[in-house]
């Protein structure tokens, strides 16, 4: 059995490239992290930061023009990226399962829900009896808060939230050790979103599985994750325990992301992050965030920062450290520009 403190998922130096006419776009650029059983990692980033590429690479589902250009994805000691096709087929769903982005459109529109669920289970347990399968389907539907009668419905007969739950039931049908959820609630209303996330949390607790939740909403990630990783232009720029990341972010990008979220206590000037992420085929020299960073200095424009320890359990790739204890106050001039300079 798996040891509680031994990481279940270890990602080491993962690189995913998309080959383009202008050279490779480095969508995932040397990313490493690890996850223990039962842990919840939230990976956050803007569009184009490499989040979804990351999710598909963890499942080894990367398709051309994308390719995994290096690294390891160790699942319980075995490298998914080095598995034979047969091993890989057996591992997916059984050990690591994906709740895809827009799971609602990942369901087959011409198959009833139970047939789709049974299909997935039979691929791994071909000898399971019909009665047993039906019982399992009912149990799975109940576990995601759906009435077992839903089994006989087609996807179009379900609401968005129900389809998302159904996708979650399929993903957990073989009790995986790791669940990768790629923006599982992006098209849902706030109330349904909360219900779906709470269901995911409950399922995970029941299975003792680790979860990688990928998203762009810092609020949602904060509500769910234990550990938060921030991606920018294909790199993991900061990672740490959720409370530290929200209350004391060390990387300027994390800080600006947290600040760009309005609250409902006081009305304030809405601040975005000026500028746009760089094109992945043409990254600026030095730190990829330097053109948008209010703290950028000479070294940032020439030397790429590496992830370093900045606080207990928290690592950031930023040249402000180790000289500084925490982020210095935002320069006043930068504040002013912050409002004026719009892309």
């Amino acid at each position: 059995m798996t040891d509680k403190d031994k990481p279940i998922l270890v990602v080491e130096g993962l690189h995913v490239h998309y080959d383009t006419g202008k050279g490779p776009a480095k969508a995932v650029n040397d990313v490493s992290f690890s996850l223990k059983p039962g842990e919840r990692l939230g990976l956050i980033g803007e569009s184009g930061s490499g989040k979804t590429t990351m999710a598909t690479a963890l499942m080894r589902l990367t398709r051309a023009p994308g390719r995994i250009a290096g690294g390891k994805v160790m699942l319980d000691g075995r490298d998914i990226l080095a598995m034979s096709p047969r091993e890989l087929r057996e591992t997916r769903l059984r050990d690591i399962a994906l709740i895809p982005q827009g799971a609602m459109s990942s369901l087959n529109p011409v198959m009833k829900l139970d047939e789709q669920m049974i299909d997935a289970i039979l691929a791994h347990k071909p000898r399971m009896k019909r009665a047993e399968l039906d019982a399992r389907v009912a149990e799975l539907l109940r576990s995601v808060g759906l009435d077992p009668s839903v089994a006989k419905r087609f996807p179009h007969e379900l609401s968005g939230g129900m389809k998302q739950r159904a996708a979650m039931a399929i993903a957990t049908s073989l009790a995986p050790k790791v669940i990768v959820a790629d923006e599982p609630t992006s098209a849902l209303d706030v109330v349904v979103q909360r219900q779906v996330m709470q269901t995911l949390g409950r399922l995970q607790d029941g299975l003792g599985a680790a979860v990688v939740l990928i998203g762009h909403d810092m609020g949602l990630i904060a509500q769910f994750a234990d550990v938060v990783g921030v991606m920018y232009a294909g790199k993991l720029v900061e990672i740490g325990p959720v409370r530290q990341m929200i209350e004391n972010p060390k990387h300027p990008y994390t800080k600006l992301l947290v600040e760009s979220l309005p609250g409902i206590e006081v009305k304030q000037a809405l601040t975005g992050i000026p500028g746009l992420p760089p094109p992945l085929v043409d990254l600026p020299p030095g730190c990829s965030f330097n053109p948008r960073c209010p703290f950028a200095f000479e070294r940032c424009r020439t030397e790429t920062p590496l992830l370093q320890d900045v606080a207990p359990g928290q690592r950031a790739s930023c040249h402000l450290y180790p000289e500084h204890q925490s982020l210095p106050p935002l320069p006043v001039t930068a504040r002013a520009q912050h409002h004026e300079a719009r892309p």
């Binding site: 909360r194 810092m218 904060a222 929200i246």
Partner: peptide, 19 residues
Amino acid sequence: PLPDLDRAWGNEEIPVSEA
């Protein structure tokens, strides 16, 4: 979903009511 850990959703389950 507020990025404020002191205003967490909590664990009380809200009934699934869509159906």
